[in-house]
């Protein structure tokens, strides 16, 4: 019996970390159709920001929840102004440019911090369920995923900012004639997506091995999840993150970690075949 509770916690852990990883990408890809291949490096920058500031005496919670998103948000802003803004509507070019960008970021971080593993200890302790033990951090990740979801929903649905952003994404020309500057909106959206990604990096920092090349482990899964989720940022990412996260964790538990990954990728191929527009293209049409 206890093992099912533990397994449920594993699934929650898998789904909520996947959701956090993908959210920033979903914002950037879903709203602006920019394929950001440097997404993994944004996660890495968030993790580094957390580790470096925590190891220099900043409170670990502030380092994770404030420093990481602020820093990566700023980096995103600079990158948008210097690089991305010339590439809207040029899908292939944006892929090439962001891929180069990812190599550049890896190179810079390696030069500054060296190619060694960094880390901070995991805050919060563990608790036991029967004979098994799990970590409170799992529940904290779930809490953060729910909070992020709520925050984005409220901003997009009920604020003027969200309305402008949605309008610009739907029809930039019309928004422009109504007095909105699309360039500013794009800039803000990209920075926000980067900040959310940085937050995910910060939240993952205490449970990962942090190296300049860690982004590579996340970027493929993040893309699969976002594409599988479809156009709707929240409902799409949430449903596909839950689906793939659960499949991965349960698959890894019942078979081996290798098959856990294989099952996810197979499921993604079948899903895209059956629902080319992603989950939200079929079931949550018109939702956020």
């Amino acid at each position: 019996m206890d093992i099912y509770v533990i397994l449920l916690l594993d699934v929650i852990n898998g789904a909520s970390s996947l959701f956090l990883i993908c959210l920033g990408l979903a914002i950037i890809f879903g709203m602006m159709k920019i394929i950001n291949l440097a997404h993994g490096e944004f996660i890495m920058l968030g993790a580094y920001a957390t580790v470096i500031s925590a190891n220099n005496g900043v409170n670990i919670w502030i380092a994770m929840l404030v420093v990481a998103p602020l820093f990566v948000g700023l980096v995103g802003l600079v990158i948008e102004r210097c690089l991305i803004r010339f590439l809207y509507g040029r899908l292939v070019d944006s892929m090439l440019a962001t891929w180069g960008l990812s190599l550049l970021i890896i190179g810079i971080v390696t030069t500054i911090f060296g190619n060694t593993i960094q880390g901070v200890p995991t805050p919060l302790g563990g608790f036991s369920i029967g004979a098994y033990r799990s970590s409170y951090y799992t529940l904290f990740l779930l809490l953060m995923a729910v909070l992020m979801m709520a925050a984005i929903y409220v901003v997009m649905r009920y604020t003027r900012l969200g309305l402008i952003a949605r309008a610009t994404m739907q029809n930039p020309g019309m928004a422009n004639t109504l007095g909105v500057n699309p360039s500013t909106v794009y800039m803000g959206t990209f920075a926000a997506g980067a900040a959310v990604t940085g937050l995910a990096g910060g939240l993952l920092a205490p449970v990962s091995g942090i190296t300049p090349v860690m982004g590579g482990a996340y970027v493929a899964k993040a893309f699969i999840t976002v594409v599988g989720g479809g156009a709707a940022i929240l409902s799409g990412t949430l449903s596909s993150a839950s689906l793939f996260g659960a499949l991965n964790q349960v698959g890894a538990y019942l078979t081996t970690p290798v098959f856990g990954e294989v099952i996810v990728f197979t499921a993604a191929i079948i899903l895209i075949r059956l629902l080319p527009q992603g989950i939200s293209g079929r079931f949550f049409k018109g939702n956020l």
């Binding site: 533990i6 397994l7 594993d10 482990a217 081996t256 290798v258």
Partner: peptide, 22 residues
């Protein structure tokens, strides 16, 4: 015996499995 591809980052299920195997 469990094998892990080099890009595995989430060890939750394995840790549960190890606990179950005692």
């Amino acid at each position: 015996i469990d094998f892990f591809p080099l890009d595995v980052t989430n060890f939750g299920p394995t840790i549960s499995k190890i606990q179950a195997a005692k």
